[in-house]
């Protein structure tokens, strides 16, 4: 069975690009176009890895992580944040054990796949 990755971003173009990178490596990719869609579908999808944008209009990626943590699902999912912001705010330091990597946009295919592969 192939490993499942969920890509969460409000920009469909980004989701499609990341999905094509990952599918090319044999992963099964599920997408969510925003934080709420991610929360609604996470249990059904049950991904091994979550690749999530930070800045989304409905709720930011850190808020999504807090909700997933409260739902009790975050302990079983690896998380990589995708963001244009170089440094997260200190107020999210308690989420540090859940976020295995933090990739700054623009990212390149080689670096993204290297970081994903090392976690899978």
């Amino acid at each position: 069975m192939t490993k499942k990755i969920m890509v969460v971003d409000d920009e469909k173009d980004i989701v499609d690009i990341v999905a094509s990178f990952l599918e090319g490596e044999g992963y099964t990719v599920h997408s969510a176009l925003g934080g709420r869609e991610c929360i609604e579908s996470i249990k059904e999808v049950n991904p091994e890895l979550l690749l999530m944008d930070v800045m989304m209009p409905d709720m930011n990626g850190w808020e999504v992580l807090r909700d997933l943590k409260n739902m009790g699902v975050l302990e079983y999912i690896k998380v990589i944040m995708l963001t244009v912001v170089k440094e997260p705010k200190q107020e999210y330091a308690d989420l540090s054990p859940y976020v295995l990597d933090y990739i700054t946009k623009p990212f390149n295919k080689k670096d993204l796949l290297k970081r994903v592969t090392r976690l899978m």
């Binding site: 540090s96 976020v99 295995l100 990597d101 933090y102 090392r118 976690l119």
Partner: peptide, 11 residues
């Protein structure tokens, strides 16, 4: 280390 540490340690 924390976020990004797995990749860094592999390097």
């Amino acid at each position: 280390t924390s976020t990004g540490g797995i990749a860094a340690l592999h390097d």
